[in-house]
């Protein structure tokens, strides 16, 4: 049996807490508080970490950690990424500039992404079709990075499991790293 630590990060409101909650077999640990930032239409926001646990069909256990999305909490990004075996970046396509959002996390986790696999999930593509997945791929290509990008609805367990499987497949195939 293998143990994995996977880190979810991405913009506030992209669904990191929801994603972990939708697949965790134990009640997730959530550190959300009332959001006071009027520029972000959200009642509550994670300021510490999220944690959940998932046992895969083969018995492997995946410990799922989530970061706060806002850059003012980037000190936690470094703490939480320690010993992670992979990174999942969630982007909310309904935000004003989601492509720039992606760059924030690619830059914020640049050191980790030079050695770790990553999967990128784009949410709300059904209601906000622009930018397209190809636009995100162009961003990665311009940075000489190659990570799978999926359209996801993190409320759907199967979408989150697919993201995790995509990440673990890279680990097993050793097809990651700059």
């Amino acid at each position: 049996m293998n143990e994995y630590k996977i880190l979810f990060t991405g913009t506030m409101g992209a669904g990191k807490t929801t994603a972990i909650g939708s697949v965790s077999e134990a009640a997730p640990i959530v550190t959300d508080v009332a959001n006071t930032d009027l520029s972000l239409g959200k009642e509550r926001t994670t300021v510490g970490l999220d944690y959940g646990l998932l046992t895969l069909a083969n018995g492997d256990r995946v410990r799922l950690f989530g970061t706060p999305g806002q850059q003012r909490f980037n000190f936690l990004w470094k703490i939480l990424s320690k010993s992670a075996l992979g990174l999942i970046i969630l982007i909310d396509n309904s935000r004003p500039d989601p492509l720039t959002d992606l760059v924030v996390y690619l830059d914020g986790f640049a050191e980790d992404l030079s050695t770790l696999p990553c999967a990128i999930g784009i949410g709300r593509l059904d209601t906000h079709p622009m930018p397209t997945l190809e636009d995100y791929m162009d961003i990665l290509a311009n940075r000489n990075q190659l990570f799978p990008i999926l359209s996801v609805d993190v409320r759907r367990r199967e979408d989150v499991v697919l993201l995790i499987d995509t990440l673990l497949a890279q680990l097993e195939a050793n097809t990651f790293g700059a």
Partner: peptide
């Protein structure tokens, strides 16, 4: 509690916004 400083007195050049964010995380 979500990490924004609303009042501060700093003597050592620390960044109040950074202290506020860290305190928010630790408290949560």
């Amino acid at each position: 509690e979500d990490g924004f400083d609303v009042a501060s007195v700093v003597r050592d050049g620390s960044d109040p916004s950074r202290i506020a964010a860290m305190a928010s995380s630790i408290s949560a």
